[in-house]
């Protein structure tokens, strides 16, 4: 096998009009973006809260969250699997082996990243803004909206880091999604499958497409946040 085979496989996938492939790409993006949005909706306020709140055990929580940034995807997948399995506590929802289960698992992976980076950024920003905001009566959690908005361009990096982790992982989506053709098959599980079938050019071709997509999304977000940051100073 050589690289030209992989490149031509990638080219064939992208321009071949293969609907199954487009569905896989679509599902990958939808699952990952949904997980990132969910993680942001939860993680940004949670990270900001952790930055501003003072309570016993706060240090332990910060260490825990920072540590969970390295949570192995298979472990996250296993936890979600056990919870969503028909024999698990939330089994009656019937979510195992569905895209929703994949979103939940990836949210679990992305959340610690968003919380940890948000906590750090907001803590720094709050150090700078604290007296002015207090002067305006914005103390405690009332300072959070201002801090999140003013940290938005830096926070985009946190969200991108989460996106990168979610789009690249295979362990969690494989366990909770089941890699069902046409239903829960994503870019990464398809790559794993093609590798196990020994079709390495196709696997690598899928990999090239995935990398290109990830690069594209990163580039757009980076450019947008740079332009925005220049505006906001």
């Amino acid at each position: 096998m050589d690289v030209t085979q992989a490149l031509s496989a990638a080219f064939g996938l992208v321009f071949g009009g293969d609907h199954a492939f487009y569905a896989i790409v679509g599902l990958s993006l939808t699952v990952t973006l949904s997980a990132v949005v969910l993680a942001a909706l939860i993680g940004l306020p949670a990270g900001a809260l952790l930055a501003l709140a003072r309570f016993p055990g706060r240090g332990a929580v910060i260490v825990l969250v920072n540590g969970l940034m390295g949570l192995p995807p298979v472990v996250a997948g296993l936890i979600v699997f056990l919870v969503l399995s028909r024999s698990g506590p939330l089994g009656s929802l019937g979510l195992l082996f569905t895209p929703a289960a994949m979103v939940v698992a990836q949210t679990l992976l992305v959340l610690p990243i968003v919380i940890a980076i948000t906590r750090q950024l907001i803590e720094d920003l709050h150090g700078e803004y604290r007296e002015h905001l207090a002067s305006l009566g914005l103390t405690g959690i009332r300072a959070i909206p201002t801090l999140l908005w003013d940290g938005r361009f830096a926070l985009a990096t946190a969200i991108l880091a989460g996106f990168g982790r979610a789009s690249a992982e295979v362990g969690a989506v494989l366990i909770v999604g089941g890699n069902i053709a046409g239903y829960t098959r994503t870019m990464t599980t398809a790559i794993a499958l093609e590798t196990s079938k020994g079709d390495l050019p196709l696997a690598l071709g899928l990999g090239i497409v995935l990398i290109a997509l990830t690069l594209g999304i990163n580039a757009v977000t980076y450019a947008a946040s740079r332009v925005g940051a220049r505006f906001a100073g």
Binding site: E128, E131, S135, L136, G137, T146, D150, G151, A232
Partner: peptide
Amino acid sequence: HAMVFQKPVMLRRSARANILHALAAI
């Protein structure tokens, strides 16, 4: 009563938005 600091705290927004933010806050 209001306060102005030695190092002015400027939000990462336009001059106008800085004023509007303070007025919204109160």
